[in-house]
């Protein structure tokens, strides 16, 4: 090997080493805080591990118990699925509608956008959960307003039929980040498409279904996946506003996981729950992606 070659190899080596040095914080974090914990969690899920006690092998014990002998677990899955399937479509529909309202070049648009976005900014906080638990309580804002119309209110949070609805409403109220993403997507649709359609005499409704929706479908898919994943994991609002009650009507999966792992320290069982949860979320996300082949329109493929 001559000197030039040596230098070349040395340069390549040193660049590779430098690259790994630069990403080393993440790499270390990935192995220590993601990969290794996942392996451990998988192992724990087959044991009866309780914190401070050494784990004992159970085989599929936790998993069979979950599905045959734990109505609370099944209940929490049902509540979570119900919550996701109402909150996500409502939130996205609302976000799209408002994004279309705001997609005009008029004076003062940024003021409206700021006001409408504001609830989403403070959304996930304990503070807003406190506000919400008062608004929908017995003496809360909603019943005061209904009082003006001489309608007798009830405690919306204390009633198992409406409690989950108040949580859905809370997250729908915070449609801001989806709206901002829709707005950016709407701005990228070429105006010529609408002009051509108008010239051909297309009405607003058919322009919406034939231009806006197809052109926006990749963004809709993105928002749908993002919101579904987020919605599955909702914790703070349910923990503060309804505490899972009344009669477990808002007892979401994340609440149950919290109770098992950190109130009862049943780490083995909680790990098994987390894996079932991951599979469920993965399955739902995969379903969304699979269905997207039918409804997402990609311009670069020239449509389908």
């Amino acid at each position: 090997m001559n000197a030039g070659n040596k230098l070349f190899y040395w340069k390549r080596w040193s660049t590779s080493i430098a690259g790994y040095l630069f990403i080393s914080p993440w790499l270390l974090g990935f192995f220590l805080l993601t990969a290794w914990p996942m392996i451990q969690s998988f192992y724990y899920s087959f044991t009866d591990y309780v914190l401070l006690d050494s784990p004992r092998w159970l085989g599929f014990g936790n998993y069979t118990k979950m599905f045959t002998d734990d109505p609370k677990f099944i209940g929490s899955l049902k509540v979570t699925l119900l919550f996701v399937s109402f909150s996500v479509p409502l939130k996205l529909a609302f976000a799209l509608l408002v994004a279309m309202l705001l997609n005009r070049n008029l004076k003062g648009m940024s003021v409206y956008r700021t006001i409408i976005y504001f609830p989403s900014l403070i959304g996930a906080s304990v503070a807003v959960s406190i506000l919400w638990s008062n608004i929908f309580g017995m003496d809360g804002l909603l019943n005061q307003l209904l009082g003006f119309l001489s309608i007798e209110g009830k405690s919306w949070i204390g009633n198992p039929d409406t409690a989950l609805g108040t949580l859905v409403l809370l997250v729908v109220w915070q449609f801001g980040s989806s709206m901002v993403i829709f707005l950016a997507g709407l701005k990228q649709i070429p105006v010529e498409l609408y002009e051509a359609a108008s010239m051909d005499g297309a009405r607003a409704i058919s322009r919406f279904f034939r231009i806006t929706l197809p052109m926006l479908s990749p963004v809709i898919l993105f928002n749908l996946v993002l919101q579904t994943i987020g919605s599955f994991q909702m914790f703070t609002q349910a923990y503060i506003v309804t505490k899972g009650g009344p009669i477990d009507s808002t007892y979401m999966f994340a609440l149950y996981l919290y109770e098992k792992a950190f109130a009862r320290l049943e780490m083995g069982y909680a790990s098994a729950m987390a894996w079932v949860f991951l599979l469920l979320m993965g399955a739902v996300t995969a379903l969304v992606f699979a269905s997207s082949e039918r409804w997402v329109f990609y311009e670069s493929e020239g449509g389908k």
Binding site: F30, P37, L278
Partner: peptide, 20 residues
């Protein structure tokens, strides 16, 4: 892998991380 972990819900690593 960075992109995959972006989608990973925190619940899966929660318990072992806490134990650690």
């Amino acid at each position: 892998i960075v992109l995959i972990t972006l989608m990973l819900p925190t619940q899966v690593t929660l318990v072992p991380q806490y134990v650690m």
